[in-house]
Structure formats: C-alpha cells, structure tokens
C-alpha cells in the first residue's frame, strides 16, 4: 500500500484527495470491482435512507395470526416468529447496520489516525510507548476486545458500536503509522518546516491529505470487519436488543424456528453477506487503483 503512495505523483502543499480529480473518477469506474462494489454500497445507502418508503409493512408490528408464513407475493421474505414482515425488517436493518458500521469505523479511524500520526511524526519515546501498546492490542482478535468491553459497558447497540470502534483502533493506528513513516522525511514536509510552518499546520494541511488514499482503502475494508463484529455481538445478545430489526439479532431470535421456517435464517444472513461483500469488493478495487504494484499483479 505504501509503495503505491510513494510512486504516485504527490500534490505539493494542501493537495486534494487523489480521488477528487475527474480523470480519477473515470479510471475508478473502469475498474469492475469499484463499479460492482460501489453500486451495491450505493444501493444499500439508498435502501437505508428510503427505508420508511420502501418497507411494505411496519417492521415492529406483531401479528399473532401471521406467524412464520413462508415467502409469498405479499410477504416476499416471509414472516418471523412474531408475524412481522421479514422484508421490512431487513430493509430497516440496513439503516442500523450502516449506522453501526459508520460510527464504529469513525471511532476507530479518528483515534487510530491520531495515535498513528502522533507516533510516526513525533518518533522517539512517544512512538516507542504508543506503538508498543498498539502492537500488543493488535495481536488480540477484534471481537475479543469488543466482547471484553461490552462485558463491562453492558449490552446495548450503542455500547456494541463503541466497543467495536475501540477494538479496531490498533488496526487504523498501525496503518497510519506505517504511511506516516514513509511520508515523514519527504521534501515537502522538510520544506514546510524550513519556511516555519507549525507542527499542527504541517500535520493537518500537508501530511494528512497525503495519507488519505491509504485511509480510504483501510476504512472501506474495515467497514466490512466492523459490520461483521457488530452483527456477531448482536447475535450473541450483546449488541442490538429485540425488537430492533438488526440482522444479527434477527438471526438470534429466529434460531429456534429454523427447521420449520428456514427463511428466517436465510434473508437476514444474505443481507449481512451482501453488505460485507460489497465493502470488501469496493475496498479491494480502490486498493488496486491506488497501488500500481498490486494492479500490475492483478492484470
């Protein structure tokens, strides 16, 4: 990843993100992974925003007489053990899932970038202390850190979101640290220092814009990981709580009915897979685009 950034022409000074230029957009859309992954992500965002208009039924409405109806023309995805329309719940679930992913990645990214930049830029003992700690936390599986935090914060969607966000900080910190180390001794930063720019200005106006491409890649791939962790926590009953239509918790509450009504298992699971897959494909695509070395390998 770092190689790609090194060999790409660098904007000097407060450069725009490399994705911003129009020609870049055209190149991006010619990449099938970006096109496919991006379209699905866009579709998911639309579904989430338009949920109240798209959902045929109230996702919370319990109807005893309509329990466990197999998919029909009225109930395309069938109904669950409380007679709720699964399609409507899956649609509303997109909203929850994207929200959770966004907040978790936001927490991880902001804290990780702060730690990684500080460590890479300051060097010396600051770097030694910060990165030693981050390296240790990095060896823990994310889900264990998240589980440990939820254990003490208490089970709820908000706490699961915070816990997942904190659990991925080491990942973003390490990536940022790696990229900052590459950038730190480049002429544009030294030039900035010579003309007397403050550290704050150098970091925010010059360094950060140059590491943004790498951050876009890791955040897109990280979005998938965050969605998976959050769904797992909800499945375990530690995240979203009933009756919220979160996909993981839908699977958990329907799991006793799966032999009789397998559609309860099928649709929320497919929703998770499609979401995670879309962000994975998009992330791989953006990485191809920004990393010429990788691109040569793929073609």
């Amino acid at each position: 990843m770092t190689d790609g950034i090194e060999t790409t022409p660098q904007p000097i000074g407060p450069g725009e993100s490399e994705l911003a230029a129009p020609s870049r957009w055209r190149t991006a859309l010619r990449n099938p992974r970006i096109l496919i992954g991006g379209s699905i992500v866009l579709l998911l965002v639309l579904v989430a925003i338009l949920a109240p208009y798209l959902a045929p039924f109230d996702p919370y409405k319990i109807a005893v007489g309509k329990r466990l109806i197999a998919p029909t023309a009225t109930y395309l995805f069938g109904t669950d053990e409380f007679g709720r329309d699964i399609l409507s719940r899956v649609i509303y679930g997109a909203k929850l899932t994207l929200y959770v992913g966004f907040v978790a990645v936001g927490i991880g990214l902001l804290s990780g970038v702060a730690i990684g930049t500080l460590a890479g830029y300051a060097g010396g003992w600051v770097q030694a202390v910060l990165m030693r700690g981050i390296d240790f936390l990095y060896t823990f599986p994310d889900i264990l850190i998240a589980l440990g935090l939820v254990a003490f914060l208490g089970p709820s969607l908000t706490n699961a979101m915070i816990a997942v966000g904190i659990s991925v900080i080491p990942y973003y910190a390490r990536v940022t640290y790696g990229v900052v180390l590459v950038e730190r001794h480049k002429p544009y930063l030294e030039a900035g220092q010579v003309i007397g720019a403050s550290h704050w200005r150098l970091i925010t106006r010059h360094l950060i814009p140059n590491i943004i491409p790498a951050l876009i890649v890791v955040s897109t791939l990280g979005f998938s990981a965050a969605v998976l962790s959050a769904a797992a926590l909800s499945y375990l009953g530690l995240g979203s709580q009933p009756p919220d239509p979160e996909w993981g918790s839908m699977l958990a509450s329907g799991r006793n009915y799966i032999t009789r009504s397998p559609w309860i298992l099928l649709f929320p699971g497919m929703a998770i897979i499609v979401t995670v897959l879309a962000f994975n494909i998009l992330g791989d695509g953006i990485r191809d685009l920004l990393d010429p070395r990788q691109r040569r390998e793929v073609r």
């Binding site: 797992a232 993981g248 699977l251 799991r255 799966i258 998770i272 897979i273 995670v276």
Partner: peptide, 12 residues
C-alpha cells in the same frame, strides 16, 4: 465471498 460470510450464520 468466504471472508464475507459471518461464521455464526454459516454455523446455523
């Protein structure tokens, strides 16, 4: 596709 399938769903 494999890395996108949640383990608990595959298990179910």
């Amino acid at each position: 596709l494999g890395v996108s399938i949640p383990s608990f769903w595959l298990g179910l």
